[in-house]
Design a protein around this nucleic acid. Structure first.
Length: 209
DNA sequence: AAGGAGCGCAACCGCCATACC
DNA sequence: AGGTATGGCGGTTGCGCTCCT
């Protein structure tokens, strides 16, 4: 048995928000704030929505200064390097990108950025196969079934082997990180002394909870 | 022109951490 | 100190749109 749900699911509306609901939620929060209680909010406004749903809608869509889509190359780089450093901590990554939400970044990573990187890796695989007469093929296909981070590691390993001056292997090209993350990376590096900068940051066991 | 496949995004679900009583 | 409520987060799902055949 799990814990009780946060609201009565039978009396709660689900699915896409209507413009009227958006307007009601936005107007209320702009006037009164959240009151520190999302669960009570829908009743106060008269919305048949779960408090969590209201919170999500506000944070991901209605909040002022939210940017949607149109990720820049620089943002791509920040997301990649942070993902390499800390994994799927989307809220931390979002904190580095003003106007971006964790949900947006998560979606962007899962639907596009990951494919972009893995697409490059596929090409790298092909060229590695050429140069090794296919000897590595089995280990590569095994690796394809492991975690995304491991795949990313492989990709970066290949990149750094093939191009020592690539983005991933050149810390000077990495975007500026929050001091907290700089510190985290430094401690990871000290734990994993001796390998390339990339691998020092991509520690599969050091950040997964 | 139609329909199937793939993609992108909004929203939901469930778990964990923390606050509160 | 223990139980419950709430907030926050990451993973997943489902729907609508676009593209391809």
């Amino acid at each position: 048995m799990g814990r009780a749900p946060c609201c009565d699911k039978a009396n709660v509306k689900k699915g896409p928000w209507s413009p009227e609901e958006d307007a009601a939620l936005k107007a209320y929060i702009e006037k009164n704030g959240t009151g520190g209680n999302w669960i009570a909010l829908p009743q106060k406004i008269g919305l048949e929505r779960c408090g969590k749903s209201c919170r999500l809608r506000w944070l991901n869509y209605l909040r002022p200064n939210i940017k949607h889509g149109g990720f820049t190359e620089e943002e791509d780089n920040i997301i990649c390097s942070l993902y390499i450093s800390i994994g799927s901590r989307w809220s931390i990554i979002a904190a580095q990108l003003p106007g971006r939400t964790d949900n947006d970044i998560k979606n962007y990573w899962n639907t596009r950025l990951k494919k972009k990187l893995l697409g490059r890796r596929k090409q790298s695989n092909l060229s590695a196969k050429d140069t090794n007469n296919g000897i590595e093929e089995n280990s590569y296909s095994n690796a394809l079934s492991s975690s995304a981070l491991e795949r990313l590691q492989l990709h970066m390993q290949l990149q750094s082997l093939q191009n020592p001056f690539s983005f991933y292997n050149n810390p000077a090209l990495w975007p500026k990180l929050h001091p907290f993350q700089e510190k985290m990376i430094q401690s990871l590096q000290s734990l994993n002394d001796g390998s390339s900068p990339v691998m020092q940051n991509a520690l599969p066991n050091s950040h997964m909870s």
